[in-house]
């Protein structure tokens, strides 16, 4: 874990986890994390309560990640129609050697959820935050967090299951 005494590195660490979970590994996620850390550096004097540092960074990271994701969505829509079939989900789960690629499968499954459903999953399972903090970061009620989590898991369960044989069932 990054040192608490280095706010920029702490911000970079938190933002990297959020961005990689939401955007996948790659330059785009690292650029977002970098931007978040720089913003934190620039504005850190505004924060008077050090206890709220992580929540503040999460807010910035969420905003920057969504911005990058929306740009990407616009780009993809302009380039090609969305694939609405289950084949992409199944294909994502099988790498070139025919092995199940859990990370690729997870990213594809996450991409089929709504923005806020994805964010709630990331804040809960990547950052291990309680409902109250997630609600504060997303500016919503705790009940909304619970229902978003529940709906996200239901939707993922309903997705076609990829197998090592390469198909969806």
């Amino acid at each position: 874990m990054a040192s608490q005494t280095d706010p920029a590195l702490r911000a970079l660490t938190l933002a990297t986890r959020t961005a990689v979970a939401m955007l996948g590994p790659g330059d785009e996620a690292h650029d977002v994390a970098q931007e978040v850390a720089l913003r934190v550096l620039e504005r850190r004097r505004q924060l008077r309560d050090p206890e709220k540092f992580d929540a503040w960074v999460h807010r910035i990271a969420v905003r920057e990640t969504l911005r990058a994701q929306r740009k990407r969505t616009h780009r993809r829509r302009a380039e090609a129609p969305l694939d609405e079939t289950s084949e992409a989900l199944a294909a994502a789960a099988i790498d070139l050697d025919g092995q199940l690629d859990a990370a690729a499968f997870a990213r594809e499954a996450l991409s089929r959820l709504g923005e806020r459903e994805r964010l709630v999953l990331v804040l809960r399972y990547v950052h291990d935050l309680p409902d109250s903090q997630i609600a504060a970061i997303l500016d919503c009620r705790r009940g909304t967090v619970n229902s978003l989590l529940s709906r996200a898991r239901d939707r993922m369960r309903a997705m076609p299951i990829a197998t090592q044989e390469g198909g969806a069932r």
Partner: peptide
């Protein structure tokens, strides 16, 4: 179950750290 596999993947990201190159780039 799909949801458990996704959650396992997300939990694995808790250990993700920025690379030394990223930290140097930030500085």
């Amino acid at each position: 179950m799909n949801d458990e596999r996704v959650i396992d993947h997300l939990v694995s990201l808790r250990e993700l750290e920025p690379s030394p190159a990223q930290a140097a780039r930030l500085r």
